[in-house]
Design a protein around this nucleic acid. Structure first.
Length: 702
DNA sequence: GTTAGGG
DNA sequence: CCCTAAC
């Protein structure tokens, strides 16, 4: 049983991750990369830890020996506690050092689940924010929830176990509280048992973690188990790992998912994940290696996480001001390289609080300013009682704060295939691997405003306009998995494992016939009329029944073979509906392909003849002003391809043939402007329009 | 927001 | 087409 993540990636995806193009990216990426990796690891570890717990739980229940499992996981209550106690300092530092914040975010997402919260509340109705760090988790949770006004209703898939009391499987997590936010693992077991019948087993772990600070999203390792988030992974047969498990007809499919929809940030932050590393580390490693790609990088830079407070307050290190991320995967086209995941989580900003100062006064404008600003935000958001940290108080009074409540983050469901003859141990490993695989990529949180991605992490909310009430509605968050790729070795056919969003296809592990082709060719993906483009894209997510749903319903396709799981249902994740545009843009849907017609090419050539290259905007305005789907970048790209096309032999050309005559013009124009450096001429018309004759072309040389 | 290029 | 670095 091999787990694999679906990649967005197309065939091209296999390029070597590491090497970016030299010049441009060197600086940034280099930095990034490292950071990312760390983050990834963190996230991964967290996941692994969770998975491990789950597994253990299930196992332990089976064996009726819970304790053992814990030990294996390496999670000790004591240690955990200690960490918690030390959180004040430790947390931040850790985050900073490791850059694990990302992971945390992820966790938090998981953690926050409505269902869980509910249960949490139940137990800790009166939690106080001021509570000692040690038990914070619980208290905080409830408190936070209350404040936020989330729905705390918790649903647990398996109602039986879960809701009533949480056994607190994750004892390590919240030792003091005695009850942890976490959901019970037991349910998982039950499910497992049931699984046979259904073939799907759901492990629900409910974790409720809360954090006062909305902004902060650190993950509490302890809480990990949470589950609202369901992790979905396509299960692939594991070529390597379990030799002992041959393919069997009878395979038990396990689905690990979290149903909870709401997640609360965890106040307590993180425990060290490392300690918890799953047993499956080896396998995990292998996978990880395979999966690693440059795309894995975690979005946030360490710098982002820079501690706002040096003093080591409780403040979270969380710097992504804008967001929370979860990730999802979705595929667009077979050819697409993109790794963005379709999954998104959305956060809603529910309230805005203004302090004495007006928003406009918010502290940060420059980089530094910004930081401070963010710090404030965090601070407030954190809500950790300011009382606790005196130094922070100063911040509090000043700025406006925007509260964000994250309604739901869901972890994709995880599906794994296990032969009935598989041992519990193998099951555990499998689950662990799956989880690990998923998590290890780390998560990226993207912020969308008005459907547009807000990429500048250094801008303040104020600057970005997110703080404006009017904009809250249009604010969205996306989660992207940094691990998008599959390992070539496992899947020689690489692309084959990708599946279209709406296709539920089964793959058999060995053959990996290129499903992509069929899948991508899927009509639904094809370009709709221009006007409907967006809708069309949307269809991918909305119209198509989400795999998840199907799975739940039992309508799921047979998962025995290699199972490819479609993208998660985005809708479910989004708390606040974003308008279609927003969603589309944010989802990162690839635009439908619209080959240039001959007439368009002609228009382009003509425009370039007149304007020269390097003035794509003008070209656009001049000849494609009415073609909304053709951006100047598109025109530039098209020109690029035209030049290339014209340079190769007709036999090598692909796609709709372009009249040779036009290609000749392209070549001539290109040669001409290459020499004349259109840009240098300045004004649009300063340069003589190209009038090249063949002779000229020759002289210019191509 | 544009350009220019790599992917 | 996408994504980004640089402007």
């Amino acid at each position: 049983m091999v787990l694999k993540k679906r990649l967005d990636y197309g065939f091209n995806g296999y390029r070597v991750p590491v090497i970016p193009r030299a010049p441009r990216s060197v600086r940034r990426r280099g930095l990034h990369k490292k950071t990312v990796e760390d983050s990834q690891i963190c996230a991964f570890e967290l996941l692994a830890a969770v998975a491990g717990k789950l597994l253990q739980e299930s196992e332990s229940s089976a064996s009726s020996n819970a304790a053992e499992g814990k030990d294996q996981l390496g999670i000790h209550n004591d240690s955990t506690k200690q960490e918690l106690l030390e959180e004040g300092k430790g947390m931040r530092l850790e985050c900073t050092d490791q850059g694990s914040c990302v992971g945390s975010d992820f966790v938090s997402e998981l953690a926050a689940q409505e269902r869980n919260s509910k249960s949490t509340l139940k137990h800790f109705p009166h939690a106080e924010s001021s509570s000692v760090l040690g038990h914070t988790s619980v208290n905080t949770c409830s408190d936070f929830l209350k404040k936020v006004g989330w729905n705390v209703k918790s649903e647990i898939c398996e109602s039986k176990n879960a809701v009533g009391n949480f056994p607190g499987k994750v004892e390590g997590a919240s030792p003091d509280s005695g009850e942890s936010c976490e959901g019970n693992t037991e349910s998982g077991n039950g499910r497992l048992l049931e699984a046979e019948g259904k073939q799907t087993v759901d492990f629900d772990v409910a974790n409720a973690c809360s954090s006062k600070d909305p902004m902060e999203i650190c993950v509490n390792t302890n809480t990990f188990i949470n589950s609202d988030s369901s992790v979905q992974l396509p299960a692939y047969r594991d070529p390597v790992p379990n030799a002992s498990l041959p393919r069997h007809r009878n395979i038990v499919k396990l689905c690990i998912r979290d149903d909870d929809e709401n997640s609360v940030a965890c106040k307590q932050r993180r425990t060290k994940i490392r300690a918890f590393r799953p047993q499956s580390r080896i396998g995990y490693r292998r996978i990880r290696k395979l999966l690693t790609s440059k795309y894995w990088k975690v979005a946030p830079k360490l710098t982002d996480y820079e501690p706002s407070n040096t003093n080591g307050g409780l403040k979270p290190v969380y710097r992504h001001r804008k967001t929370l991320y979860t990730r999802k995967r979705c595929q667009d086209e077979s050819s697409s390289k993109r790794r963005k995941l379709c999954d998104r989580g959305s956060i809603i900003a529910y309230d805005r609080e203004t302090s004495s100062e007006s928003i406009s006064n918010s502290p940060g404008k420059g980089t530094k300013g910004e930081k401070s600003g963010s710090a404030e935000l965090l601070h407030r958001a954190t809500g950790l009682s300011s009382s606790v940290k005196g130094h922070q108080a100063s911040f509090e009074s000043r700025g406006s704060h925007v509260k964000f409540s994250i309604k739901s983050f869901r972890v994709p469901e995880l599906y794994i295939e296990v032969p009935e003859t598989a041992t519990v141990g193998s099951l555990k490993r499998t689950v662990m691997e799956a989880v690990t695989t998923i998590l290890r990529g780390g998560l990226h949180v993207g912020v969308l405003l008005q459907g547009k991605k807000v990429r500048d992490d250094h801008r303040t909310l104020l600057q970005t306009g997110i703080s404006q009430n009017g904009n809250l509605d249009s604010l969205g968050f996306t989660l992207e998995s940094s691990s998008a790729q599959a390992s070539p070795p496992l899947f020689p056919n690489g692309p084959s494992f990708l599946l279209p969003c709406d296709a539920h296809q089964q793959l058999t592990r060995s053959q990996a016939s290129p499903i992509m082709d069929s899948g991508f060719s899927n009509a639904s993906i094809d370009p709709p009329p221009v006007t409907n483009l967006e809708n069309h894209v949307e269809s991918c997510h909305e119209l198509v029944p989400s795999p998840t749903d199907n799975l739940r319903d039992g309508t799921v396709p047979d998962c025995r073979a290699l199972v490819a799981i479609p993208a998660m249902n985005v809708e479910a994740l989004a708390v606040v509906p974003m308008n279609q545009k927003t969603r589309l843009s944010e989802l990162g849907q690839r635009r439908t392909r619209r080959p240039f017609s001959v007439s368009e090419v002609e228009a382009l050539v003509e425009a370039v003849e007149k304007l020269g290259t390097g003035r794509w905007r003008d070209v656009k305005l001049r000849s494609f002003n009415n073609a909304n789907h053709r951006t100047y970048v598109d025109l530039k790209d098209k020109w690029k391809t035209l030049v290339h096309t014209a340079s190769i032999s007709p036999q090598q050309r692909r796609g709709a043939p372009v009249p040779q005559q036009l290609l000749d013009r392209v070549l001539a124009v290109h040669a001409y402007w290459s020499q004349h450096q259109s840009k240098q001429h300045g004004g649009k018309h300063s340069v003589e329009p190209l009038k090249i004759s063949e002779a000229q072309v020759e002289s210019v040389g191509v």
